[in-house]
């Protein structure tokens, strides 16, 4: 239950970071050409994907820690 609850909290934390920090990013303010919009969106997708990857790493570490502790005791 702890792992599921923690995963749920991490999802909310991730959503907060995505909506308040990543979504407002604009590295080309004032520019409306296609390349700028595309690059800006690409940066947002890459940042969100990094967060998702981080979520996966945290869950794997947590699982390994849990199994190591339980199986050794």
């Amino acid at each position: 239950m702890g792992i599921i609850g923690f995963a749920w909290l991490l999802i909310f934390l991730g959503l907060y970071i995505i909506f308040y920090l990543i979504v407002p990013i604009n590295i080309f303010p004032g520019r409306t050409d296609y390349a700028s919009i595309f690059l800006n969106s690409l940066l947002k997708v890459a940042s969100s994907a990094t967060l998702a990857f981080l979520w996966i790493i945290i869950m794997i570490k947590l699982r390994d820690l849990y199994m190591k502790r339980k199986l050794s005791s």
Partner: peptide, 13 residues
């Protein structure tokens, strides 16, 4: 996604 989290975590693990 939240409701099916045990299944998703299981397959992911």
């Amino acid at each position: 996604i939240i409701s099916i989290l045990p299944a998703i975590l299981n397959s992911f693990f």
